[in-house]
Amino acid sequence: MIEVGRLCVKIAGRDAGGKCVIVDVLDDKFVMIDGNVRRRKCNVVHLEPLSEVIKISKGASHDSVKAEFEKLKIPVWGTKPKKAAERPKKVRGKKKKAEEAATEAKGKKKVTKKAAPKKAKEKKEEKPAKKPEETESVEELLGGEGEVKAEKKE
């Protein structure tokens, strides 16, 4: 009964109930199995042989077993490749931090339009008090920005 190509059902362990095929006979107790189970060494006692026999070579690869099983329309065990999750990157150095801050600020402006004009108003109030001489130029600049933002808001 125990021979290369014999279809079996595994009756013990986590793969119990799965159909498999004997790929290699290791000794009088153990065989190598593959199919709808993990490819592994298995005790003969843990297998229930079926009447069918597949034509496969001794020590056939998982792919060839898979091809044979697909002909018989038996599902085959396999792993799905995992995608590596994105990790937050640590940024070192002042320049890079400044760049990040700039990019974040841009994002915020786009997302929260209400918050941006308020900040501009605050700047207006603060800066003239500190430097009364440059009020005109600063106000012009800030005013210009504010207008642009107001337009955006509208």
Partner: peptide
């Protein structure tokens, strides 16, 4: 235990069941 019917059937009964199903 991580196997079909784990925590419901003992191993002996599981084997009997699986053999019955296979035959």
């Amino acid at each position: 235990p991580t196997r079909p019917y784990g925590g419901v059937l003992c191993t002996k009964c599981l084997r009997k069941l699986m053999i019955e199903k296979a035959r």
